[in-house]
């Protein structure tokens, strides 16, 4: 992916994926964490620039289920908190 300076910027509109409400959409701006973590997410299609939708958030600090294009995945809250999005 090309990384433009502008894309990397975090603005006030940027929030962590865990802070998105159920049903709302966001564009991934930045994925924090190490290279291994990034790669693990990338190969499943979770990459900067992609648009994600929150399908459910399980109660009691449970995981999030997100949709991207035609695929869906479940991701733990700790991991989701390192993904930053711009709410759409």
């Amino acid at each position: 992916m090309p990384k433009n300076e502008g894309e990397q910027c975090m603005t006030e509109k940027t929030k962590s994926l865990v802070d998105l409400k159920k049903g709302s959409k966001g564009k991934i701006i930045e994925i924090q964490g190490g290279h291994g973590f990034n790669k693990r997410l990338n190969v499943l299609g979770v990459r900067e620039g992609q648009i994600v939708r929150i399908i459910t958030k399980q109660p009691l600090m449970g995981p999030l289920t997100i949709a991207m294009g035609s695929s869906q995945m479940t991701i733990g809250r700790g991991m989701a908190s390192k993904i930053f999005v711009e709410e759409l």
Binding site: R40, P63, M73, T74, I75, G76
Partner: peptide, 8 residues
């Protein structure tokens, strides 16, 4: 004990 991360 890594968190869950799987495709649905």
């Amino acid at each position: 004990s890594p968190e869950i991360f799987l495709e649905i």
